[in-house]
Computed example of a mutant assay.
Amino acid sequence: MKLAGVRLPGDDIVHIARLDGDTVQIVTDVARFWADARGWTAKAARLTGDAVPVASVRFAPPVPPSARVICVGLNYRAHAAEGSFEVPGYPTLFGRWTASLSVDDVPAPVPAGEPGLDWEGEVAAYVAEPLCDVDPGTALAAVLGYSTFNDLTARRAQKLTTQWTLGKNGDRSGPIGPIVTADAVGDLRDGLRIQTRVNGAVVQDGNTRDMIFGVGEVLSLISRTLTLNPGDVIATGTPDGVGYVRTPPWLLQAGDVVEVEIDRLGTLRTPIVGADGRAPRREGIA
């Protein structure tokens, strides 16, 4: 089952809806949903009645404003190697604010002063219940579902200091897809293919079975320090093939389109625009 964040016509409240092809069934508002994510998910599966056309709603990230978005860096062996990093003994964690999140087909601007944006296709996991000092098995069982995610990165800002926060929070730099419930996805260790394309050219082609730290391990580690709450999101890291390590470096420019496609989770498309919000005119297009 797929669950998406949507706004109805004339209403700025984000609702969670069951996504069925070209229609949605409204479940409840985002705050109520995450207050009882398991219960509302069960109700969503049973919904019948009048559906709303997808064309009549605006999609939104399916998370509450209070959510923490915690990202894992260097979580694929080949990606650590391509950046000349040693395989870490613990997950490298950094934070995103929910204000940086966006959805499919929303343009992402290249920040002023940046030579471009880098792509990082990955899987995001959603926490369904409070987690405090839990073991990895308990943590994994608390995952409601997964989404396609693109951790678009401003590398110049990221490398100004040893802390990555600035380069990981550009405007609309965190496009995220609908939630696919965990029962429809299975164990990431069994392997989901992650492919990232720029203007149709494949730039990343990895598999989740190559992750260093599993979702349960990461959630368990975090829960020893802070309580994870329903609606919190864990972005699980990207495979090798990022742009900044290439010779010469290859970064996303205004006019480019980046897509992340993940088995069972779907495809996430993001047009890139300039800091002024514009893409250059292409030859032959008025």
Results as ranks from 00 to 15, higher is better:
Lys2Ala: 08
Val6Asp: 11
Val6Glu: 13
Gly10Lys: 00
Asp12Ile: 01
Gly21Asn: 15
Gly21Asp: 12
Asp22Ala: 13
Gln25Ile: 09
Ala31Ile: 07
Arg32Ser: 11
Arg32Tyr: 01
Trp34Arg: 10
Trp40Lys: 08
Thr41Gly: 06
Ala44Asn: 04
Ala51Tyr: 12
Val52Ile: 13
Val52Thr: 15
Val54Arg: 15
Val57Ile: 14
Phe59Trp: 12
Phe59Pro: 07
Pro61Glu: 15
Val63Ile: 15
Arg68Asp: 05
Val69Gln: 01
Val72Ile: 08
Arg77Asn: 03
His79Leu: 01
Ala80Pro: 00
Ala81Trp: 02
Gly83Cys: 03
Ser84Asn: 04
Ser84Trp: 05
Val87Asn: 14
Val87Cys: 10
Pro88Glu: 11
Gly89Ala: 15
Phe94Gly: 12
Gly95Arg: 02
Gly95Cys: 01
Ala99Arg: 12
Ala99Glu: 07
Ala99Pro: 00
Ser100Arg: 12
Val103Ala: 07
Asp105Arg: 14
Val106Cys: 03
Pro109Glu: 13
Pro111Glu: 14
Pro111Asp: 11
Ala112Met: 10
Pro115Gln: 09
Gly116Gln: 09
Trp119Leu: 08
Glu120Met: 04
Gly121Cys: 12
Glu122Ser: 02
Ala125Met: 05
Pro130Met: 08
Leu131Asp: 10
Asp133Pro: 00
Val134Met: 09
Asp135His: 04
Leu140His: 03
Val143Cys: 06
Val143Tyr: 02
Tyr146Asp: 02
Ser147Tyr: 01
Phe149Trp: 04
Leu152Met: 11
Arg156Glu: 11
Ala157Trp: 15
Lys159Asn: 07
Gly167Glu: 05
Lys168Gln: 05
Arg172Tyr: 06
Gly177His: 06
Gly177Asp: 09
Ile179Asp: 09
Ile179Arg: 10
Leu188Ser: 05
Arg189Glu: 11
Gly191Ile: 05
Gly191Cys: 10
Gly191Thr: 12
Arg197Gln: 12
Arg197Tyr: 08
Val202Gln: 14
Val203Cys: 10
Gln204Phe: 04
Gly206Val: 04
Gly206Asn: 12
Gly206His: 12
Arg209Thr: 11
Asp210Phe: 06
Met211Asn: 11
Phe213Leu: 03
Val215Met: 08
Glu217Trp: 06
Ser223Asp: 02
Ser223Asn: 05
Thr227Cys: 11
Thr227Asp: 08
Leu228Cys: 08
Asp232Ala: 03
Thr238Ser: 14
Pro239Trp: 09
Tyr244Thr: 00
Thr247Ala: 04
Thr247Val: 02
Pro249Asn: 00
Leu252Met: 13
Leu252Arg: 07
Gln253Leu: 04
Ala254Gln: 12
Gly255Phe: 07
Val257Glu: 14
Val257Tyr: 07
Val258Lys: 13
Glu261Leu: 00
Ile262Phe: 08
Asp276Val: 02
Arg278Thr: 05
Ala279Phe: 09
Ala279Gln: 14
